[in-house]
Amino acid sequence: MTTAGGDPTDGCNNLALRKAARYLGATYDKALAPSGLRATQFSILQKLSAHGEMTIGGLADAIAMDRTTMASNLKPLARQGLVTVEQSASDRRARTVTLTPDGLSRMKAALPLWQDVQARFEERFGPGEAARLRACLVGVLDTGFDPWAE
């Protein structure tokens, strides 16, 4: 689809979303850098803190990520002792992820950094606009695509 400006990428939903995601992701990564965590790692630790032990698949679903990528993201966290990844006691095919005390401590130490960048974004973008953006992005996840289906 070509837009009035003539650049076919101007109307590309994927490109617009990825540009914004890279921009905002780099902003959060920079803000969280003093904690030694990247934004994705912080999100994983936050999810585990809120939900307790989760399977890799459940954690991947909660963050909208494929299982293979989630497993790759967990490796450095496990090496640092922030999470454990073990075979599930109830399903030998599944692996469960648990937040360690060190992981909880690191997440809590990073929380003020996250809260600060979150507040700065909301101030600059507008709290109402930020809430609408999050609602729209949740809507994107409900469009019915199944990108990680095997």
Rank of each mutant, 00 (worst) to 15 (best):
D29T: 00
K30D: 07
K30L: 07
L32V: 00
L32N: 00
L32D: 01
A33C: 08
P34G: 10
S35H: 05
L37R: 05
A39G: 01
A39I: 05
T40S: 12
Q41D: 07
I44E: 02
I44V: 14
Q46W: 01
L48H: 07
S49N: 12
A50S: 06
A50D: 14
G52P: 07
G52H: 12
G52F: 11
T55R: 00
G57Y: 01
G58A: 10
L59F: 04
L59E: 03
L59D: 05
A60V: 11
A60W: 13
D61C: 03
D61H: 09
I63Y: 05
A64C: 10
A64D: 15
A64G: 03
D66E: 11
M70I: 00
S72N: 10
S72E: 14
L74P: 04
K75T: 15
P76A: 06
A78R: 12
A78I: 08
Q80A: 15
V83C: 02
T84A: 12
V85N: 03
V85D: 06
E86A: 11
E86N: 13
E86D: 09
Q87S: 06
Q87P: 01
A89I: 05
A89R: 10
S90P: 02
S90Q: 14
S90K: 13
D91I: 01
A94F: 07
R95V: 04
T96N: 10
T96E: 12
V97D: 04
L99P: 04
L99M: 02
T100R: 04
T100G: 02
P101Q: 00
D102R: 11
D102S: 03
D102W: 00
G103N: 08
L104Q: 09
L104I: 02
L104F: 00
L104W: 00
R106T: 11
M107Y: 15
M107W: 15
A110M: 02
L113A: 07
W114D: 04
W114A: 11
Q115K: 13
V117M: 15
V117P: 02
V117C: 07
A119W: 06
R120M: 12
E122V: 06
E122A: 09
E123Y: 03
E123Q: 15
E123F: 06
R124S: 13
R124G: 05
P127Y: 11
G128C: 08
A130T: 12
A131V: 00
R134D: 14
R134G: 04
R134Q: 11
A135S: 06
C136Y: 14
L137D: 13
L137T: 14
V138F: 12
V140P: 00
V140E: 08
L141V: 08
P147M: 07
P147C: 06
